[in-house]
């Protein structure tokens, strides 16, 4: 009796689950679908609601690039992403390795210091960071005490240097290196490999998954960053993609929706691809750090 009841029940339950997830998943992608559909419509077509474009306007993607300096914005975002991510991979991981595997005096205290820093929300730092960047000595017309000029404001340095390392990534790297056995390093020491050599040639390759996770997180956050470039730069030649989108979305005298959707699609696509191919690492990083409320 009980088996007769039990066998069909999970099946019905499963069908219900799939239905629930299908509806939910549909609602999750609906905005993206509508974004892509809109990006192919002609400029007049969006005065009224419609689902499908009358005919596919591929040229929207080309014309949008001309409507605002989006090509420059894309280039700038790329420079910022590369300029931040490469040093992050060197500095934050080296510090994480030192804290995990080398006899640094006060390592515990330094680790706690990094943990406290990673709690501080970036919104809190924006105003004072703006002042710090403006007062960098001997930059942008500043004297040796950082007075008189604009420092790094409105330069590449302002967009890159404050983010070439981050407490979160140092912490993540440390968590990973702690789990590696010290024996391999010891064996290399006996063979006369230098300490830096041990980090670069032996331990770092073993920590490749941590490097990938950190790189993915940083590429994502630097590509998507908005508020800092908004505050720290004023010239078009430096401003990144997110800024371009935000300006275009607030276009005076009517927004050209198909163009905006085309550029939003281009801005979104690289991150979606990155996630689809790097899912494993994103999820591992999320689970260990719990960031991204």
């Amino acid at each position: 009796m009980s088996t007769v009841v039990r066998v069909p029940r999970p099946k019905a339950g499963k069908a219900l689950l799939v239905a629930f997830l299908t509806v939910g998943g549909f609602l999750m992608v609906l905005p993206f679908v509508w974004m892509v559909l809109t990006s192919f419509k002609s400029l007049n077509e969006v005065n009224h609601f419609s689902w499908l474009p009358q005919r596919i306007e591929w040229l929207n993607y080309v014309n949008a690039l001309k409507a605002a300096p989006f090509a420059t914005y894309f280039r700038n975002s790329l420079i910022v992403v590369v300029g931040q991510t490469i040093p992050v991979l060197l500095l934050s991981t080296a510090a994480g390795y030192a804290l995990a595997q080398l006899p640094v005096r006060g390592a515990r205290g330094i680790l706690n210091y990094f943990i406290i820093l990673l709690i501080v929300p970036f919104q809190v730092l924006i105003v004072p960071l703006f002042l710090v960047v403006r007062r960098i000595p001997l930059a942008g017309g500043n004297d040796i005490f950082g007075n008189g000029g604009t420092g790094w404001l409105n330069t590449w340095a302002a967009l890159i240097v404050p983010f070439v390392s981050a407490p979160l990534f140092t912490f993540l790297a440390r968590q990973f290196f702690v789990s590696l056995p010290a024996e391999l390093a010891d064996a290399a020491r006996v063979d006369g490999v230098s300490e830096i050599g041990i980090f670069v040639r032996i331990m770092a390759p073993l920590a490749a998954p941590a490097f990938v996770t950190i790189a993915l997180f940083n590429v994502e956050s630097s590509w998507n960053g908005f508020i800092w470039p908004l505050v720290a730069t004023s010239s078009e030649s430096l401003r990144p993609l997110q800024f371009g989108l935000a300006t275009f979305a607030q276009g005076q005298g009517g927004v050209q929706w198909p163009f905006l959707m085309a550029m939003s699609a281009l801005a979104t696509l690289p991150m979606i691809l990155l996630f689809v191919f790097g899912q494993r690492y994103f999820i591992a990083g999320m689970a260990t750090s719990g960031i991204k409320g």
Partner: peptide, 24 residues
Amino acid sequence: LFRTLFYVPVVTSTVAVASVWLWI
């Protein structure tokens, strides 16, 4: 596939997402 669908809004920039919702 489902997991990806639910996670994608997290990795897309808030500015792009905001533009789309502004249009919605």
